[in-house]
Design a binder for these strands. Structure first.
Lengths: 327, 327
DNA sequence: ATGGGCCGTCGAAGCGCTTCGACAAGAGGA
DNA sequence: TCCTCTTGTCGAAGCGCTTCGACGGCCCAT
């Protein structure tokens, strides 16, 4: 219910300077004497001035807003998604940008619209599939983009992600180092592989490579998320491969159920998980964590670089780290 | 990489009309002949015109963007939060608005900033506490606001939520109707009550009222979310109150663990949950669902009404519905 | 015929900001 | 001393859109 919004003209009048001077004080794009700067900033505070976002965007051709395109589909672990989202928002704020939320179910139209209307200066997309329909659209856009995840053809794009292949290898190395010769991988639900989501496949291929390179024997299975499904899968696995003593779980939702089933069967496999830290911590499990916080921050940083017109590496792979916890 | 953005002036030239005519065709705010309208729309399509959001906001004093202020704190069930968020985005899009994501950890500043800079036309806040620091800020804002949840003093505000008191009563009524005389409520983690989050308390008080009104005996306990904690809580409950035969669970994360514990103890209580449908469905449980979709949609609808300057009810309580599932 | 309305369209005035070029005034070099 | 640079500030021109008032036709009631 405060009075009408304060404009830059009122600040200028109050401080006894020209409008442009106020603008330069605020943007720092030209030298301003200390005395004038102080007067202007005092007036800004006194009047409670906030620049009008629309006017600023119109004049400067920069909205100071980026779009975050979130998926909402089966097989995504929602809390991790949320971690990404908050880290993106926080990072964006640290660059004085806001975040517009676009959901994937508006399809490519939302992306086109937000970009073409200059609503946003750039976009971050999450949960990229190998053959993602959004990717061709991005190529046509003049707005810079950063992807979290990798499509099959990433030429000309900027992508960030955990190095899941390295993560798969790291898990095998860990278990091999502790003496296991036959290792299984329990992965994402089958639908996630079918959709061609990169991270699931990449882990699996890293796993397979490492198994082969070390001359171990291994088996990789998809795994659903419900308790009963997990139970069946684990039992089947142990029946088919009784020699398995090491287990890699790459499925946040299933971790707890897998452990419960092993307890129930009284089988003492050594388990390492690829999952958020809190889940692994709760289960006292060795794990490679998904560095959602770091990925989000890095994505924003890259986008800001691109907004400044600077070159950035096409692909950024964050190296996995394994945390060992004794039970 | 397409050419520079198309402006309304180019559309006007292409269609052979005045700029204002194009604007009126697009906004529908003045009558335009069918013939002219067709020509203009053809040009719009031919040139791929998208109005510049900043210019539009500046001229019309409407950004066509609303803010969604999300919390991210302990004790909130994240998937439900996500459901709210997507339903808000979807609903907003249906009113031709976009959604700016603000996180609560920017505190009240983010709210002030977004409103004062005219970045957004209105705000929706989630996860309101009884004594929420953001509420006084909202009262000073000239932008309309809708809260999802109720603060202790909701005077002058517009709030939407599931009627949790009614939900608590409904659960008791259901169990009483099926012959139970001693009923327990397992609620949110203790911290949620301490924080004064309304929905948890309101369910508890509805529960207590219904118990008393029917002359039953009842007990209400907070409940943590980890498997082991739940196990302890349930065991304690059954030890202290061996006559309990009906159980209301108002804690999404705990539902599964409660059932597992009961199975383990071989106790056949009748359980009804207040939780999202998918969880109840998976567990084949009678439940009152949290209508996240509906709440989000309603919040947006109310906000749009307020944006139009219309009066709206101060409080909107969505009536709970109980779904009975036989196991 | 004649005037009053309505309909469809146009032109122009902003909206609040950024940024470019201009220009005093003082600093420094010759 | 004169001229050239800086440094700090100002004024004005937009940015692309909405909206207000004006106006020429046309129809209908007089």
């Amino acid at each position: 219910m405060k009075g009408r919004d304060v404009t830059i003209a009122e600040v200028a009048r109050h401080a006894g300077v020209a409008v442009s001077t106020v603008s330069y004080v605020l943007s720092g794009k030209r030298a301003i004497s200390a005395e004038t700067r102080r007067r202007v900033l005092d007036s800004v505070r006194a009047l409670g001035y906030h620049p009008n976002a629309g006017a600023r965007a119109l004049a400067s051709k920069r909205a100071n807003v980026i779009a975050l395109v979130l998926p909402l589909r089966a097989g995504m672990h929602v809390p991790v998604l949320m971690q990404f989202a908050t880290s993106v928002v926080t990072a964006a704020r640290s660059f004085d940008h806001d975040v517009l939320l676009l959901t994937a179910d508006e399809g490519t139209d939302g992306i086109r619209r937000a970009a073409a209307s200059a609503l946003v200066d750039g976009l971050i997309l999450m949960d990229i599939e190998e053959h993602d329909e959004r990717v061709p659209v991005l190529r046509e856009l003049s707005e810079p983009t950063v992807l979290i995840g990798f499509p099959a053809d990433s030429a000309g794009l900027t992508c960030v992600d955990l190095d899941f292949e390295a993560a798969g290898k790291l898990c095998v190395a860990h278990l091999a180092g502790r003496g296991h010769r036959e290792i299984a991988l329990l992965g994402a639900p089958a639908v996630v592989y079918e959709r061609g989501t990169g991270f699931a496949r990449r882990t699996r291929s890293g796993f397979a490579d490492a198994i082969e390179a070390r001359g171990l024997s291994g088996v990789a299975l998809p795994c659903e998320e419900g308790f009963d499904d997990v139970r069946v899968t684990v039992k089947q696995l142990l029946a088919d491969h009784p020699q398995v003593t090491g287990l890699v779980v790459h499925n946040e939702a299933a971790v707890g159920h897998v452990l419960a089933t092993l307890r129930e069967l009284d089988r003492q496999l050594e388990v390492v998980a690829i999952c958020p830290d809190d889940i692994a911590d709760r289960a006292r499990l060795a794990s490679v964590l998904i560095p959602a916080e770091e990925v989000g921050r890095e994505a924003v940083r890259l986008l800001m670089e691109k907004l400044e017109g600077r070159q950035v590496p096409a692909s950024t792979l964050l190296q996995p780290r394994l945390t060992y916890r004794r039970a």
